[in-house]
Structure formats: structure tokens, C-alpha cells
């Protein structure tokens, strides 16, 4: 039986298997169709109907279930929802168990969250460092482009820390598509 306890392990194995069958195009199709369109339909319905409060409700439940020990912070500021992940339960599971079947495990989040947010009328600022840390900012698709000071401060602090530790970071700016990734190796 495929269990939920080690889900992240076989999920990562599947990413690599799909890439071997049909390249990243098939993998991205899987995140879009199977994860966003099917598995996470409850998230899409909640966020599509309630917007920011739906995000708070969805991630409140999900993070409580996946990361009961904490390791994250989230909130609403103005017309935006933000999250800071310090100890991702999913990537952390892989790291603690020495699992690395696919190169870019963390991309799966943008892979399903991106299209879901687009449908709900939001775009995404996101970066991750492959070590269980990331930030998220969800803002209306029709936005002024002006940074929200407190969220901008969080993003800049994390990016400085990761660059200081010479970490490779993957960054997405106003993106809804995992193809929009910009890899930053400035810190190395």
C-alpha cells in the first residue's frame, strides 16, 4: 500500500519517474492536472470562493496537520497573504531520510499553487533554497507592483541570509507558472 506517512518519499520518486517518461513537460502536466485539478480541489474551491481568508483557512489546516511542531509563520497584510517556511515538513522529511530522487522537489508547490492562484485571481512571489526554507506572497493579479513594506522586508532578509550561506535559490516574481523560475547562484 502507498501510505501517507512517507508520502513525500514516493511523491519525489514519482517526479523523477515522470521526468524519465516524458521530461519536465509531463511532470508539470502532472502537478497541474493531478495535484491542482484533482488532489487539491478542496484548496481551489476554498481559495477561489473566499480569497485571502480561504488561504488562511487552507494553510491553517494543512500546516497544522503536516507540521504540528510549527516551523512556519503566515498572515494577511492588506490585499496579500504571506508565508514564511523555516522548517518545511515535506522537504525536511526528504532531507532527514537522505531521499533525493528528483533534482527540484520544491518546484512542485509552485507547480500546483501557481495555476490555482491564477484561477483565483492572484499571482505569486516565491523563493526557496532547497533546504526547507521558502517565502510566499500572494497578491491580486491586477496589482500596482508596489511592494508591501513588511512582506518585502521579510523577503529581503531571507534572500540575504541564503546568499550569505551561498545557497542556490529558485525565485519566482509575479508568476503563476513553474516555467517562470529564475535560478540564483549569486551566493555561490
Amino acid at each position: 500500500m502507498l501510505g501517507c506517512y512517507d508520502f513525500c518519499g514516493h511523491y519525489d520518486w514519482i517526479f523523477n519517474w515522470l521526468k524519465e517518461q516524458g521530461g519536465t513537460e509531463l511532470l508539470y502536466q502532472y502537478w497541474d492536472e493531478a495535484i491542482y485539478g484533482d488532489s487539491q480541489q478542496h484548496a481551489a474551491e476554498l481559495i477561489g470562493s473566499k480569497g485571502l481568508s480561504g488561504m488562511k483557512e487552507y494553510w491553517g489546516h494543512t500546516l497544522e496537520e503536516e507540521a504540528p511542531a510549527g516551523g512556519y509563520a503566515a498572515g494577511i497584510v492588506g490585499d496579500r497573504f504571506w508565508m514564511e517556511m523555516n522548517d518545511c515538513p515535506s522537504r525536511g522529511f526528504l532531507m532527514r531520510n537522505g531521499i533525493e530522487f528528483s533534482r527540484d522537489y520544491c518546484d512542485h508547490c509552485l507547480g500546483w499553487i501557481g495555476p490555482m492562484m491564477k484561477k483565483a485571481g492572484f499571482t505569486v512571489n516565491h523563493a526557496h533554497n532547497h533546504c526547507g526554507q521558502c517565502y510566499w506572497e500572494f497578491m491580486p493579479l491586477q496589482n500596482s507592483g508596489e511592494p508591501e513594506p513588511s512582506i518585502e522586508s521579510l523577503k529581503q532578509r531571507l534572500l540575504r541570509e541564503w546568499d550569505g550561506e551561498k545557497m542556490e535559490t529558485d525565485r519566482f516574481e509575479q508568476a503563476n507558472d513553474v516555467c517562470k523560475k529564475r535560478v540564483n547562484t549569486q551566493g555561490q
Binding site: L2, G3, C4, Y5, D6, F7, Y11, A34, I35, D38, S39, Q40, H42, T62, E65, E66
Partner: peptide, 10 residues
């Protein structure tokens, strides 16, 4: 484990 992952498996 987190039971909602069964959604992903299905």
C-alpha cells in the same frame, strides 16, 4: 502521516 495526502495518491 497527514491523511489529506490520500487525495494526492488517488
Amino acid at each position: 502521516g497527514a491523511a489529506d495526502f490520500y487525495f494526492g495518491i488517488n
